[in-house]
Structures are given as C-alpha cells and as structure tokens.
Amino acid sequence: MTDARTIRFTLNGAPVSVSVMPHETLIEMLSLRLELKGARESCGQGLCGCCTVYVNGKSVSSCLYLAQLVDGAKVVTIEGINDGAELDPVQQAFIEVGAFQCGFCTPGFIMMARELLDVHPNPTEDEIRHYLIGNLCRCSAYPEIVEAVKLAARRRAAGTTPALAEELSA
C-alpha cells in the first residue's frame, strides 16, 4: 500500500493539514478525518448531490474527488456558508418554505442552490430545474425546493434579511 501524504488546504476559511491516502475520496476525508457531517455520501456516483462541496469556488461531488487533489485548494462545506449565528438566505428560505422532509439531501441542495443564484441571480423555473438536476430528494420536496430557491433569489435581490423583508412587506 502506498503512503499517506500530508496535504494543506483551506477548509471553511481556516487552514488545515491532513494526512491522507491516495485512494481516499474528499467525502471520506471530510467525514472520517475532519468529522464534518453536512456532506454525505449516498448514491456514490455523483448523481444525488448529497456530498456537494465547493472546491475553489465550484461545486463538486466529493464522492468522486480524490482527497489529495484539494492540496492547496479552498474547500467550503455547508458548515462554512454562514457565520453560525445568521443563516444564509437560501437556508432561511428552505426553512420558511419547508423545502425538505428527512433532510439528508438538504445540505447538497442548499449548496447547489447558492451556486445557482450566483450564476443566475434571477433564475427561471427551467434554470432551477436544470441546475439542480444532479440533486435527488427521495422525499420529493421538489416543489418546495423550487419555491425556496425563488424566495431566496428575491431576498438576495432585495438585499434584505428575512426580518427586514417581513417589515417591508407588512
């Protein structure tokens, strides 16, 4: 068996160094070595989106990404998209609309929805469906997920927090 190598990268803004084997996937490293829970391996084939993280600002399926390849990269997981106190507008919209049931796929959908809104700030229904096609929800909260993305888009466009938005709409 070949040896582990120590890689250094930025995880959710903080520098980390981890010793990983060549065969380790990014999801294995994140969950087994770094004990993060938000990204999860489900289908194992890059189809369901449960393991979505950002590498250098782009979404990837961490189940199909070798861990050593993030050496020197910036990695962001669901744990890194808010400051802990305030939720991201997409997270907030998911709660308000109720865009999940069991919640297992939810972090992946939220990661993809955030990226979608960066690419298409005012997405059409078709753009939402296509951008999120690599995410599967067996509870089938799809209608609510589409709603939540639209709500988050409106919030982002208005640059408002939920509380402020309520005030404005009142």
Partner: peptide
Amino acid sequence: MKTLANIRVRHV
C-alpha cells in the same frame, strides 16, 4: 451541456 450529466460533473 444543458442536459449533460450535472453541473458538478461539468465543473470537473
């Protein structure tokens, strides 16, 4: 590209 795999695959 629109229907090719998904955007995460297309990123990589």
